[in-house]
Amino acid sequence: MSEQDKMTEQETEVTTSGEAPQEKKKQEVPTRSMILMILAGCYLLYTGYRLCKNVLDGVEGGSWGFFAAGAAFIVVGAVMLFVGGRNYLRREKEKHAEQEAQAQIIRKTQPAEEKKTMSIADRARLAGGLDDSEETETQADTEKEE
């Protein structure tokens, strides 16, 4: 049985069992590809600019065909730069929002620690208690030595 026949059998099994077929997830473009698209867009903009500039400056060998190619490069480069930059910024915004949502969930699940404040009188009693315990320890040590 060929792979295509197997795939059609699986699709018919899913539809006959009454379950809705799973929605295909939108495939995301990797960040690396977006960065390469941005770089390629910049390169095409530069190349198109140089081609047009050479024709306008009257450099030897520059013809209006090169000007048209340069203009096309500029348009394609600008589109690539725009799409790559927009997708990259959108991805970064989604990552930031996801991290913020996770941090907010963690904050909600962890109980809020109440800050216990001590009055000056409580601190004095505590410090006084420490002094008393030190004195009794030193007295006990001197009694043992005798």
Rank of each mutant, 00 (worst) to 15 (best):
A112K: 12
G65A: 15
Y46M: 13
K26N: 05
G61N: 02
K25F: 05
Y46L: 12
M34W: 00
M118G: 01
S133H: 11
E28C: 00
Y88V: 00
E98Y: 06
M80Q: 02
V55W: 02
M80T: 01
K116G: 01
Q27F: 07
F73C: 07
K115Q: 12
L39Y: 10
F73R: 03
T47L: 10
T15Y: 03
E100I: 07
Y88S: 01
A71P: 04
A68I: 15
L89D: 04
W64Q: 14
Q110W: 15
N87S: 08
D131R: 06
E134D: 12
K116V: 06
G65R: 14
K144G: 12
E3L: 13
D141P: 02
K93T: 01
F73P: 00
K93L: 04
Q102M: 15
S63Y: 11
G41V: 00
Q4P: 05
A121G: 13
V79N: 01
M118Q: 07
Q99I: 01
I106Y: 11
T109K: 09
I74W: 05
N54Y: 07
R32L: 11
A101S: 04
A127E: 11
S33M: 14
K95I: 08
P111G: 04
I105Y: 06
R91M: 00
E60I: 06
R90F: 05
M37S: 10
A97G: 03
K108Q: 03
Q104D: 06
A72E: 12
H96A: 14
E113R: 05
K115D: 09
Y88W: 09
E145P: 10
L44C: 06
Q99G: 02
T142M: 14
M37H: 08
P111H: 10
M37E: 11
E137W: 09
A71D: 05
A121Y: 14
G58M: 02
A121H: 14
R123E: 11
R123A: 08
D57N: 07
Q10I: 03
Q27A: 10
K95S: 12
N54T: 08
V14Q: 00
P111A: 07
G18W: 00
K93S: 05
Y43T: 12
V55E: 02
G129V: 01
L45Q: 09
I38P: 00
K93F: 01
T16H: 14
L45C: 10
L56D: 08
V59Q: 15
Q104T: 03
Y49I: 08
T138L: 11
G128F: 13
E145G: 13
A20F: 03
M118L: 07
E145C: 12
G62D: 10
K108A: 02
Q22S: 08
E143N: 09
E60F: 05
A112L: 13
A78H: 06
E13D: 07
R107I: 03
T117S: 13
M118K: 09
F67A: 02
V76D: 05
G77Q: 02
W64T: 13
L130A: 09
D141G: 04
F67Q: 02
N87E: 05
Q4E: 14
E28M: 00
Q139E: 09
R90W: 04
I35E: 01
A112Y: 13
H96N: 12
N54K: 14
A127H: 11
E143C: 03
